[in-house]
Amino acid sequence: MLELKHISFSADEKEILRDVNLTIDDGKFVVITGPNGGGKSTLAKIIAGILQPESGQIFLDGEDITNWGITERANAGISFAFQQPVRFKGVTVMDLITLASGKELTTAAACDYLSQVGLCAKDYINREVNASLSGGELKRIEIATVMARKTKLSLFDEPEAGIDLWSFKNLIDVFEKMHEEIQGSIVIISHQERILNIADQVVVIAGGKVEKIGPKEEVLPGLFGIDTGCRGMREGM
């Protein structure tokens, strides 16, 4: 279980998050949504340890991890898929998936992850994760690296962005399969209604605060009725 207590964060003298309290229960599928600039990505980075909160505490399974670094949190079972995946000269897709899994992988096993995210494995496995890959390809590889980690908490920051040629159904299948197989918690930052629709719990973050939280049946109808800046959620469907 992940608990965020009274988390606040500012950057350049601007308050990004203000007194955020949030609990992610084990095995839950949680989607965080809300307007751009509302603090969603900042919150995900604070959970992964990439950013340190100004105040507040973070607990993982009851242990205070607020002062833990990125590596410690990763090894404690937190994975994070970047909104804008990083490129590396010389590091191959195989290297990255092997590092993610934390053990030697057969090519077949690594290829399996790629196939699941809709990439023809043999075309990609030995490619470098560099500028020759498109944004959409990088996003899928990013998702594959988190799948390979099989951790108890997987965070995805707008995984659907840039995945234009691959149907949303496949992306949703990936998350559902992951949820079923790993039995861990999945937290996705998304604007997409189809992704919101598979959530156990929806969290709306706006203006640096948790504006609404609850089961999708409760939160979603209100979302489309109020002006939270989420009107784009129905786009691209």
């Binding site: 990439i50 590596t71 990763a74 590396f88 590091v91 290297d95 590092l99 934390g102 980690r149």
Partner: peptide, 19 residues
């Protein structure tokens, strides 16, 4: 990115240079 996969900063640095 490599640290979020569980590598220490030093290991991540080595991995990037090796690649």
């Amino acid at each position: 990115k490599l640290m979020t996969l569980g590598l220490s900063e030093k290991e991540a640095e080595e991995q990037i240079i090796n690649g």
